[in-house]
């Protein structure tokens, strides 16, 4: 399998919302290439007929009765917010000005 290139790492960093510096990119690209080489070994024994396991437990949805219960007050929920206004989280602009 091909290794991972510096361009790919830059693309993945953008997808991951990580504003990497150029020297970080160089360093990570080299390290990630080694790591990807090593972990690619999993394909050696992952035969067609082996079912995948995503979780150690057989998962089922867990429901609770839909009733109102005590929860955080707005002040508690906003206590850790970087910025808050009128009982809401204040965030930087999400859409453009136009």
């Amino acid at each position: 399998m091909p290794g991972i290139t510096r361009e790919e790492v830059a693309h993945l960093a953008r997808l991951s919302r990580l504003e990497l510096k150029a020297e970080e990119l160089d360093h990570f690209a080299e390290q990630l290439n080694d790591i990807v080489d090593a972990v690619a070994r999993v394909s050696e024994i992952a035969a067609e007929d082996v079912p995948p396991t995503s979780h150690p437990l057989p998962l089922t949805n867990v429901m609770r009765p839909d009733v109102v219960r005590p929860s955080l007050t707005p002040a508690e929920a906003l206590a850790g917010a970087p910025a808050a206004e009128e009982q809401r989280f204040r965030v930087p602009q999400i859409l453009g000005e136009d």
């Binding site: 993945l12 991951s16 990580l18 504003e19 510096k21 990570f28 990630l32 990807v36």
Partner: peptide, 18 residues
């Protein structure tokens, strides 16, 4: 995220995204 995460966390996020 660039300022707040250390190198190992960044490596793993990128590896996982890959």
């Amino acid at each position: 995220r660039e300022a707040g995460f250390g190198p190992e966390v960044k490596r793993r996020i990128i590896l996982g995204t890959y």
